[in-house]
Amino acid sequence: MRNLFAVAVLSSIYSFMMASVVLVLDAPDVALTEAAVGAGVGTVLIVGALYLTKTDESPPIHGMFLPLVVAAGTAAALLFGVSDTPPFGDPSNPVTALGPDYIARSIPETGIPNVVSSVLASYRGFDTLGETVVIFTAGIAVLMLLKRSPARRRGDGDKGG
């Protein structure tokens, strides 16, 4: 597929389907975020970048052999590790062992019935602060990268760039 607008639309559809899968896996908060941020904001960002650059991809010039070997090697290593992991949805899974503890303590300790909110804002409040710092830094970096360009473009105009 050489037209990059089609890639933007397909990645938006993919994000929306991933949101539906996550909703089926009992995570409505993640599904909402993925639909709004992944399928919405992400697509706006990609289409905006395409508007500022080029919308067509040139045909590839090097072969696909080496990437395929790397991808197949990674897949083999990951498949080798799967057999040691707990089965899907098993309640005795060590990953979910602490779940009932969070559920039982949410209302007495924070008064919030949505446990995801209480963990996000209360038990892991510093994590959320760190996340905000990351977004802030990324926003400043994007502004610095894009704000410099008009002056540079005028300067490069003399050299024909």
Binding site: L25, D26, A27, D29, V30, T33, E34, V37, G38, V41, G42, L45, I46, G48, A49, V95, T96, L98, G99, P100, Y102, I103, V115, V116, V119, L120, R124, D127, T128, E131, V134, I135, T137, A138, G139, A141, V142, L145
Partner: peptide, 25 residues
């Protein structure tokens, strides 16, 4: 109920992922 902690971690990861996408673009 399903385990809430992975949901919280992935909420953070989605937002950080979109920040890296914006920076890359």
């Amino acid at each position: 109920y399903s385990h809430p902690l992975p949901h919280v971690l992935i909420l953070t990861a989605i937002v950080v992922g979109i920040a890296t996408l914006a920076l890359g673009l």
